[in-house]
Amino acid sequence: MTAAPTTLAVPVPARRAPRQVRWLLRLHRPTVLVWTAFVLLTGAALLWLGGPLTDASAAAWKAYNACDYSPRCAYDQDAILRYKDVYTYTNVAVLVAPFLVAAWAGGALTGREMESGTARLAWTQGVSPARWLASRLTVPALLVAASTGLLALLHRTAWTAADGRVDTAKPWYDYATFYANGTLPVALALAGLAVGALAGLLLRRSLAALAVSVVALGGLWAAVHTALPHLWPSVTRTSDLGTGPAGTGIPTAEGVVTAGGDRVAAPCGSDTTYGCRAELADLDAVGYWRDFHPAAHHWPLHLVASGALLLLAAVLVLVSFRLLRHRTGPTARPAGGERTRTP
């Protein structure tokens, strides 16, 4: 007569959210310190750019414009060049931030922990795989959203301070300036976090996941750049042949208007040259047309593109949870925080 199998209750220590957060921050302390330094230095540079540097550059340009081409004109050329250099560096820093997030998420947040076995160790200590992944995504997402949002806000403030005052200030439709001047850095950073987390779970190799995450985010950004002009209805402006295509902003398409009212592609930019006049005459062109996005479309474009990126990030997070569940299997837990097993 065989004894009936007995069910043993193995107590699992309760893992509270604050304890998981402290462990996560301790595990990634070097990255947190480096990221904090990066945000603080970039933020300080943006404050400097939007304050003293903008004032000095605006004063220098005012003096230069008052010279009226005088050979003995005195103006602070260093202030103009300094503003231009700092603007370029800070602009690059804001745009690079999402790639840093993606590289860390793929290389360290999930990739290294899967490769080293730290994740499996956590799962044996009473933390379910789903809860482990949730903590790995929630805390960084909050920190990343807050820090990149702050940098984008400071960049927007610095750019606004120079708009119309500094002659070499970038226009709003300059693509690098446009991307850094709104919500897209935040959405790209969160998408990079989701891409990196999924790459780490898939590849389970830190260096491979790091490289794939950066390349994937670059491809995602290229897709956004390609689709951007078509995410919001554009406006159309027509002009005569002598003026050339009119309308300042992000262009989507342009061409010439024929006498019959048809819109066709423009063979040349203006009718000031003999060759261009002949080509326009052959087309029976009477004017130019241009479809573009004016300054009023800045925020609609940002919000629609950011919404699409956040939706994609949510899908990638869902895929990450499904992948983790598929590889680890469901973990049965009865009420009271105990796992049952049969010896």
Rank of each mutant, 00 (worst) to 15 (best):
H230R: 15
T238P: 01
A246D: 14
W172L: 06
R82F: 01
A216V: 12
A246W: 04
G43P: 07
A97I: 05
Y89G: 01
V127N: 13
A44I: 14
T238W: 00
K62E: 15
V315I: 13
A295H: 15
D262I: 00
T6C: 03
R277N: 03
T6D: 15
L24E: 13
H225P: 00
P251D: 13
A314G: 15
V214Q: 04
T248I: 15
P245E: 09
G244P: 07
T328M: 02
A60H: 11
T36I: 09
P334Q: 13
Y274V: 15
W123Q: 10
V10H: 12
S239L: 12
H293E: 04
A56M: 01
A305H: 01
A266L: 01
A122I: 05
V319F: 02
G244T: 12
A285F: 01
K62F: 07
A314I: 06
Y173I: 00
V235G: 05
L202K: 12
D68K: 11
G260A: 12
L41H: 02
T328I: 06
V212T: 11
L142T: 05
A189W: 04
P267W: 04
A308G: 15
A278E: 15
L217T: 13
S57C: 07
L301R: 08
V286D: 07
L47W: 08
A308I: 12
A119I: 03
W232I: 12
L25M: 11
D291A: 14
T331M: 02
V224K: 11
G219I: 03
V144E: 11
A266N: 12
F292T: 02
Y75E: 01
H155A: 06
T157F: 06
R26T: 09
P140R: 03
H230T: 10
G182F: 04
L303W: 09
Y288M: 08
H326Q: 13
R156H: 14
K170D: 10
G249Q: 04
S306N: 12
L47D: 08
V139I: 15
